[in-house]
Amino acid sequence: MADENPFPGENNTGHFWDDNIRELRNPPPRWWMIAFWLSIAWWVLYGLLYPMWPTPPWKLEQTEQQHTRGMLGWTSIQEYKQGMEQVEQVRGQYEERIAQLSADEILADPGLLQYTIASSKVVFGDYCAACHGSGGQGNPGYPVLADNDWLWGGSLGKITETITGGRKGNMIGHQNILSEQEVDTLAQFAVDLSEGREASDEAWTLFNNKGCSGCHGPDATGVLGTLPTGDVITVGAANLTDRLWRFRPGGFESAKHTILYGVNQSGVEQTRDAVMPKFGGAGSAEGRLDENQIKKLAVYVHELGGGL
């Protein structure tokens, strides 16, 4: 900064840097000053029209109102409620049709199906995603819904039944029933089938003689029979012939663990846990979804995995 002003009469402050950089006293442009004062006027006007001014501290004990209401009486909650009323008016026509139709009829209506899937994402996120993942990919320890492999059947009727009443798998632990060699044989049997290899005759004999086929089916697909409606008869036993594993990571050691300690066995410390709560049932403490929500959710889950 120079001690003497080398630019006299320039209306500068007398502060200089690098010989010629200086600070001037010129007033802001008129347009800028007009905008400045208008912004202040707008701020005052806004404070009069909308909720803004806080209640004076000495009056807080005398009133629950924490701010002025504004001359327009507008509130964000009021705007939200009005918006929800408009949304419900649009939804209403679809919800009425859903209440009158079956899940199969909804599936056959492209427009209604699109609405059902879109509106069910929130319900799925609230009640299902914590276990099955946001896209049905299945979190660790829980079934995948985004494939076409179903433990209890993938028809709309079976999915509705599952959501409404819940499911609880059951498989006894065989640690005191089978020898170590038999456990290894059956575990390898499951691995061979899952990888598309032929299992040995010895393994098939053991599979049938030890009662495994009673739950997993005579062909180890988990299906005990098929009804004329197309629904399968199953007790929730896994399909051993595909590459999907109910309890990950899968493979030989995982299969051994399940064979030894079973599924949902009381008093068995290392048993697998596989319980899905019920989401339907009027008057039930567990019932959390109404009939329409269950119907829509069944359609949504059905379409995640392509259905049957």
Results as ranks from 00 to 15, higher is better:
Glu253Phe: 01
Met33Thr: 15
Leu49His: 05
Thr116Pro: 05
Gly157Thr: 14
His15Arg: 10
Glu96Leu: 12
Thr241Lys: 03
Glu303Gly: 05
Glu23Tyr: 00
Gly135Asp: 11
Thr68Tyr: 00
His132Gln: 09
Val275Thr: 12
Leu112Phe: 06
Gly287Trp: 00
Val299Met: 02
Cys215Tyr: 01
Arg97Val: 12
Arg69Ala: 13
Ile21Thr: 11
Ile259Asn: 00
Gly14Phe: 03
Ser120Asn: 05
Ile159Leu: 09
Phe279Tyr: 14
Thr13Phe: 00
Pro140Glu: 07
Tyr115Cys: 08
Gly157His: 07
Asn12Ile: 10
Gln78Cys: 07
Glu64Ala: 05
Thr55Phe: 01
Ile106Met: 04
Leu244Val: 15
Lys295Asn: 03
Asn176Leu: 14
Val263Trp: 01
Gly222Ala: 05
Asp273Pro: 02
Glu161Ile: 10
Arg288Ile: 15
Phe247Arg: 03
Phe247Ser: 06
Glu286Lys: 04
Ala118Met: 11
Tyr261Cys: 06
Leu49Lys: 03
His174Val: 13
Tyr127His: 13
Tyr300Pro: 06
Glu95Asn: 07
Glu23His: 02
Pro28Asn: 10
Leu38Trp: 07
His257Gly: 09
Glu4Arg: 04
Ile21Asn: 05
Gly214Pro: 02
Leu112Trp: 06
Pro57Cys: 01
Trp42Gly: 14
Lys158Phe: 05
Val87Arg: 03
Phe252Ser: 06
Asn292Met: 09
Met276His: 04
Leu101His: 03
Lys168His: 13
Lys296Gln: 15
Arg97Ile: 14
Ile294Gln: 02
Thr160Asn: 07
Ala108Arg: 09
Leu151Phe: 07
Arg69Lys: 08
Asn292Tyr: 01
Arg288Lys: 12
Asp18Cys: 10
Pro8Gln: 12
Glu303Ile: 11
Arg167Gln: 15
Gly306His: 01
Asn5Asp: 15
Ser102Met: 03
Val122Glu: 14
Glu61Met: 11
Pro140Gln: 06
Val299Ser: 03
Ile163Arg: 00
Gly262Cys: 08
Asn12Asp: 14
Asp147Gln: 09
Met276Ala: 08
Thr234Cys: 09
Gly280Pro: 03
Trp43His: 10
Lys296Tyr: 03
Asn139Leu: 15
Gly281Phe: 06
Gln66Asn: 10
Asp231Pro: 02
Arg25Met: 11
